[in-house]
Structures are given as structure tokens and as C-alpha cells.
């Protein structure tokens, strides 16, 4: 295992530098507009842009192969263009770019090595990877839910759109609530990383929390979105499966990067025991720390 980790430690300085700068630009931009995202599209655009930038930062650290560099350069140029333009974001293009990066970096052996090794120089890249996965998961949860909301308007049974049935409304409402919790938590971790850097003492705890909350949200959305779709959602030709399969894969990655779901829970539980209170531990973890820049 350690053998395959070698390239991880010899990150190409130029790539890392460029990734870092792209990340900083986007982060600054994001923070400026954070207090009031003008609208929905802008929010999605920022999240997507950061998603890829964070992923790129992690991957740049983790990968130095020509293939990865080329993928990253593509991603970075798309990111920069997208982040600057006011035009609606090309989600498909960005998702495809993210996928391409993920498919290179998402080589299971890399995740395993990264998580298993726990090498000091690598720890921060692992956090960046985990956060990148959180961002991707939020985007995919939203995509699965959007698809479902559209589908229940279009599909009619018993003479009316499925959306008119209260059982359907409530099931998708609950799914939306879990999505909202997931994005709120992911954004919090992202804000922590942007403000305090990967060395922030609270970032690991927030990512543990995200691994649990997002992990559960995936169950809820996976269930509700397929249930609302009926059989068509269970096919290879209808696009829901792509989001679903991504979600399942990314959850495995995220939780593996954090050492497994139960470890995340136990670590947070230990923090509560140490603080002698769940509430004390929660407020401490959410309290902004020092900047490490």
C-alpha cells in the first residue's frame, strides 16, 4: 500500500501552486458574496466552482501524473471562466470535469492509501479530498432531488400529477430538509477551511460530522427520489441512476477518508465526553478558530 503512495508525496510544486492560487481567488470571491448570495444560480455556481477547486487542490497535492495535470488544467480554466462570468453555469460541463478529476483521483487504492497511511505530509490533502467529496455529494443530492421534483410534476397517475399527492410531497420535503442540513454543514466546513486553512483544529471534527449527516441524507434522498420515480428511475437510460451511483460511491470515499462511519461518530462522542457535555463540544467545534495562513 505504501508503495503506491509514493507519488502522493511528490506533488508537483507548480500544479499545487496554481491550484492554491485558483482556490484562493475563488475562496475570496466566495467570501465576498457569501453574506448574500444574489440568487440560487449564483449559490450553485459558487459551490460548484469551489467543489472543483477544493478537489483540484487535494488532487494536485495527491497527484502529479501528466494525466491528472492535464485534467486539472482543464478544470482550472473552466473554473476561472465560470467563476467570473455572470452567465448561468454549465453544470453538465462542470460535473463532467469534476467526474474526470474524480475518476483519476477516485482510484480506490488512492483513497485507501491516503486514509490508511495517515502520513503527516498527506493529512491535509486527505482533508481537502474529504471536503471535495462533501461538496460533490451536496451537488448530487440536489441534482437527484431536482430531477425528482420535475418528474413528479410531469408524471400523471389517477388523473393528476404525482406532485399533487401529499405522500409524495412529504417524502420529497423530508429529502429536501436533509439536503439543506447537508449543504449547511458542508458550507460550514468549507468556510472553516477557507478561513483557517487545512491545518484548522476543527476541520476534522466538522468533516466527521459531515460524514455522518451527509451519509444519512444520502439514504433519505436515495430512497425518496427512486420511490417518486417508480421503475423508470431504476434504469440505465434515465439519468437518476448517475446521481445515485455517484452518491453511493462518494459516500464510501468520504467515510473511508475519515476512517469509517463509526469512527467518525466515536471521535465526536469522545469530544463530547472530554468537554463534559454534548452542548459544550458542539459550540466549541463551531466556534471559529485562529487563522493558519
Amino acid at each position: 500500500m505504501t508503495a503506491t503512495l509514493q507519488p502522493v508525496l511528490s506533488a508537483d510544486a507548480m500544479v499545487r501552486d496554481a491550484a492554491g492560487r485558483a482556490f484562493d481567488d475563488l475562496a475570496a470571491d466566495w467570501f465576498r458574496s457569501e453574506a448574500t448570495f444574489p440568487d440560487d444560480a449564483a449559490r450553485v455556481r459558487k459551490r460548484q466552482a469551489l467543489l472543483n477547486a477544493v478537489a483540484a487542490l487535494g488532487f494536485a497535492d495527491a497527484l502529479a501524473s501528466p494525466d491528472a495535470r492535464e485534467a486539472w488544467v482543464d478544470a482550472a480554466s473552466i473554473l476561472r471562466a465560470q467563476a467570473r462570468s455572470a452567465a448561468p453555469i454549465d453544470m453538465a460541463l462542470l460535473l463532467a470535469t469534476g467526474d474526470r478529476l474524480a475518476s483519476i483521483a477516485g482510484d480506490p487504492s488512492l483513497y485507501e492509501c491516503a486514509a490508511d497511511a495517515g502520513l503527516p505530509g498527506n493529512a491535509q490533502a486527505v482533508l481537502a479530498l474529504a471536503l471535495g467529496r462533501c461538496l460533490q455529494i451536496c451537488a448530487a443530492l440536489e441534482a437527484a432531488l431536482d430531477l425528482s421534483l420535475q418528474y413528479v410534476q410531469d408524471r400523471r397517475q389517477f388523473g393528476r400529477p404525482l406532485a399533487r399527492f401529499q405522500a409524495i410531497q412529504h417524502s420529497l420535503a423530508i429529502a429536501a430538509e436533509e439536503l439543506a442540513a447537508s449543504t449547511a454543514l458542508t458550507d460550514l466546513a468549507l468556510a472553516c477551511m477557507v478561513r483557517e486553512g487545512c491545518a484548522s483544529a476543527r476541520l476534522p471534527g466538522l468533516l466527521d460530522a459531515a460524514a455522518l449527516v451527509l451519509g444519512h441524507a444520502i439514504d433519505v434522498v436515495y430512497d425518496a427520489s427512486h420511490q417518486a420515480h417508480g421503475a423508470i428511475g431504476f434504469t440505465r437510460e434515465y439519468p437518476l441512476h448517475r446521481h445515485s451511483l455517484n452518491l453511493l460511491r462518494w459516500r464510501d470515499d468520504l467515510q473511508r477518508l475519515r476512517g469509517g462511519e463509526l469512527r467518525c461518530a466515536e471521535r465526536l462522542g469522545d469530544a463530547a465526553l472530554q468537554a463534559q457535555g454534548v452542548w459544550s463540544a458542539v459550540t466549541a467545534l463551531m466556534q471559529p478558530g485562529d487563522r493558519h495562513d
Binding site: A181, S182, A184, L185, D187, L188, L206, D208, A209, A210, L212, V213, L262, C264, A265, E266, R267, L268, G269, D270, A271, A272, L273, V278, W279, A281, V282, L285, M286
Partner: peptide, 16 residues
């Protein structure tokens, strides 16, 4: 320990 951790995780999201 697990339960306390899961409680904390959801609380962080809700509080945020």
C-alpha cells in the same frame, strides 16, 4: 460514544 457523536453531528447542522 457513537450516539453522542451522532447527536453532535446533527446538532451542528441544525444549529448552523
Amino acid at each position: 460514544r457513537e450516539a453522542l457523536g451522532r447527536t453532535s453531528a446533527k446538532l451542528i447542522a441544525l444549529r448552523s
